[in-house]
Design a protein around this nucleic acid. Structure first.
Lengths: 243, 243
DNA sequence: GGAACACGAAACATCCGAGGTCTGTTGCAG
DNA sequence: CTGCAACAGACCTCGGATGTTTCGTGTTCC
């Protein structure tokens, strides 16, 4: 195993074992390199990798620190990963979102504060009648994020946020607007909001299901998949991971 | 922005734009470094970071390649991230699993092949009466993974796999065995299996819910949280990241 | 003729040392 | 006490030298 990977594991262990707590500062490059038994160059590779997944945070002129390690921070790094996926796997991501979003919406109907619900309503009314695509995407993102946040579970919130990354969503919206489905989507958003405001978790869940399923259905058609929407290819699925 | 981060974005864009397809080989270090306008050292940091999240795969003596970019590969990197979380956030992860697992189980009842269901049953019968903790964890992991795989959605499968990482699960099992809950868990596993075999998605979903909720309940008590199980701390959540 | 071995080229792994840039602190002047 | 300037510490970037691994090629032996 390359020394860099060893260094990554060592640093990981130092954090998990508690030797390095969130917010702690790491020894300086030269010192840590000597302690782990490798050169500064190799150590920097390890640090950079841990930086990408938001475990470490380096500040030039200051030092290298362990981040807060909060779920939202670490899960946010997943957005980076989701960006790599192509159109043919977007449906799989959307299917997961179809599971999580209704659950989050139902939780939000139970746990959201009255103030947050008011803000949710404001968000809806802020949208103009003929918004730009950018405004639509931004508003849609905020709306769903606020609900996810209202579920009270930071992991669930971050996961949902990552699943429908800006990239994928922008592309979807671009297509939706071309078919004039904006009004329909807005109606559903309003219905979700009202269900949450009425503290009706099951109603909110149902509307969320309808909402996501609608997007899924549209996307499925747009991608040219004429299969039964409820039955993904079960037999046609090759056994991967063979080797 | 550091040149290394720029390089990461550049490489990312090359992949997303299709200039580099899955399985493609990157130009050699020196060449790519010159093309991106940085030194080999800095480029190596970028490559190492992309390597950690399984986007690139470097083989010494051969070259650097783009991985298959399949969901399971990329989501597997999340296991690394989950490892960093402490006990106080385990409940949040478990809550998400409580949402996903029943859905996956229901899907499995619909889509799993007869052969796979047979294997699932074999898995259950393979477990001895007084298994070691290691055997229990391994068996439990395989059981749930096989169901997740049977959902037909690779994203859902990988996500579930990451959520209940070996570390957290091992710790949970260690505790469960101490209270003699093994028999109960096995009964639930059997019930889930039978529901899937009977092609009863709703029954399978319910058993899965019961199963995960049981673990959640036990863990909540073990952690000493006497709060209302259905209401996470919504108001008590401090606004971190202030600075 | 085919297979095993030896050699060499290509590419990554690791290290080193020098110069640059940014940040936080310290000390002085107002 | 406040504001500015110089200083030291820490990370950033670079380019080259050397080691290690892999793959392809050509040769030799059976």
């Amino acid at each position: 195993m390359p020394v860099t990977d060893v260094a990554i594991d060592k640093i990981k262990d130092m954090i998990i074992s508690g030797e390095l707590a969130p917010g702690d500062r790491l020894p300086k490059e030269a010192e840590l390199a000597q302690r782990l038994g490798l050169s500064r160059s190799s150590l920097r590779e390890a640090v950079k990798a841990l930086c990408l997944i938001r475990v470490l945070d380096v500040r030039q002129g200051d030092g290298t620190y362990v981040t807060s390690l909060e779920p939202n921070l670490l899960l946010d790094a997943m957005t980076f990963v989701v960006d790599f996926h192509r159109d043919d796997t977007v449906l799989d991501f959307l299917a997961v979102r179809r599971i999580l979003e209704p659950a989050a919406t139902a939780l939000a109907a139970l746990h959201m504060s009255d103030d947050d619900i008011t803000e949710l309503g404001t968000l809806l009314s802020e949208l103009e009648d003929s918004p730009t695509v950018e405004a639509l995407v931004a508003n849609d993102l905020q709306f769903h994020r606020k609900i996810a946040d209202g579920s009270g579970n930071p992991v669930l919130c971050s996961l949902l946020d990552s699943l429908s990354g800006p990239t994928a969503r922008a592309r979807i919206w671009r297509g939706l607007t071309q078919e004039g489905a904006v009004a329909k989507t807005r109606e559903q958003h309003t219905a979700i909001y009202e269900a949450i405001a009425a503290r009706e978790p099951e109603l909110a869940r149902s509307w969320a299901t309808v909402h996501v399923a609608g997007v899924e259905q549209w996307l499925r058609n747009a991608l040219g998949t004429a299969d039964d929407p409820t039955v993904p290819d079960s037999d046609a699925e090759p056994a991967a991971e063979a080797s």
